[in-house]
Computed example of a mutant assay.
Amino acid sequence: MERSRFILGLALTLLLTIATTPSECKYHSKTVPARRLKEKVTRLHFYLFDILSGTKPSALEIARANRTTDKSATPFGSLYAIDDPLREGPEPNSTVVGNAKGLYLSASQDPANLTIVMYADFGFTTGKFKGSSFSVFSRNPVAESLEREVAVVGGRGKFRLARGFIWLKTHYLNATNGDAILKAKVTLIHY
């Protein structure tokens, strides 16, 4: 009698376990129609101050290749962390409108042809775009004297789903210490 109760209890437990186990464990997603979003084009103009010198630089070298003989301010293989102010004008006392935070890597073996690869978030701290930002992940051939194009690959806030480009032009460059002021003309396409 005891044994039949045990078997009956075991059978009931197994039956309940099987009954409560989900029978379908597939990945699930649901696509819903997006509401009609209107695409916008925004054009911005500002100056980026990338300062490596002084007591409070906005860019710091965080790694350097130990095999380089390059004596320039930004030798090949050097990695920099940046928190560069974005200003309305090229003067050091012009109004700060945001900052570019991220990294750049010196990616050219020829010191005369400085090229960096930028990974940066351009965030705004004032004005109608306060709290919004766009992201850049692109090659920047600094040594080119003309305007050069870098790619915008995303954004947040008012620049959500941004794509576009920045035309950069060197306004000032100190080849000895690496300090630079870049003029930026941005075209963003976003929702």
Score class of each variant (00 low, 15 high):
residue 1 M to G: 15
residue 1 M to D: 14
residue 4 S to H: 13
residue 4 S to T: 09
residue 8 L to P: 03
residue 10 L to S: 12
residue 11 A to V: 14
residue 13 T to H: 08
residue 15 L to C: 15
residue 15 L to Y: 11
residue 16 L to I: 14
residue 19 A to S: 14
residue 23 S to A: 14
residue 26 K to A: 12
residue 30 K to N: 11
residue 31 T to G: 11
residue 32 V to D: 12
residue 35 R to N: 05
residue 37 L to S: 10
residue 39 E to A: 14
residue 42 T to Q: 01
residue 43 R to M: 08
residue 44 L to M: 08
residue 51 I to S: 04
residue 53 S to F: 09
residue 56 K to V: 06
residue 56 K to F: 09
residue 56 K to C: 05
residue 57 P to M: 03
residue 59 A to L: 03
residue 61 E to F: 00
residue 63 A to T: 07
residue 67 R to D: 12
residue 67 R to L: 04
residue 68 T to V: 13
residue 77 G to K: 08
residue 78 S to D: 09
residue 78 S to V: 10
residue 79 L to R: 07
residue 82 I to C: 05
residue 84 D to C: 04
residue 86 L to T: 01
residue 87 R to M: 07
residue 89 G to D: 09
residue 95 T to A: 14
residue 97 V to S: 07
residue 98 G to L: 01
residue 103 L to T: 01
residue 103 L to A: 10
residue 106 S to K: 10
residue 107 A to I: 10
residue 107 A to R: 03
residue 108 S to G: 10
residue 110 D to A: 06
residue 114 L to D: 04
residue 114 L to G: 07
residue 117 V to Q: 05
residue 119 Y to Q: 06
residue 119 Y to F: 11
residue 121 D to P: 00
residue 126 T to H: 09
residue 126 T to L: 07
residue 131 G to L: 04
residue 132 S to F: 03
residue 136 V to I: 09
residue 137 F to I: 15
residue 138 S to G: 10
residue 143 A to C: 07
residue 145 S to H: 09
residue 146 L to M: 10
residue 146 L to H: 07
residue 148 R to K: 11
residue 150 V to Q: 09
residue 153 V to P: 01
residue 155 G to Y: 03
residue 155 G to R: 01
residue 155 G to L: 01
residue 155 G to N: 04
residue 157 G to N: 00
residue 160 R to Y: 01
residue 165 F to Y: 15
residue 166 I to Y: 11
residue 168 L to N: 14
residue 168 L to A: 14
residue 171 H to W: 13
residue 172 Y to F: 14
residue 172 Y to N: 09
residue 175 A to T: 11
residue 178 G to I: 06
residue 179 D to A: 02
residue 181 I to H: 12
residue 183 K to W: 02
residue 184 A to Y: 06
residue 184 A to C: 12
residue 184 A to L: 07
residue 187 T to K: 01
residue 189 I to N: 05
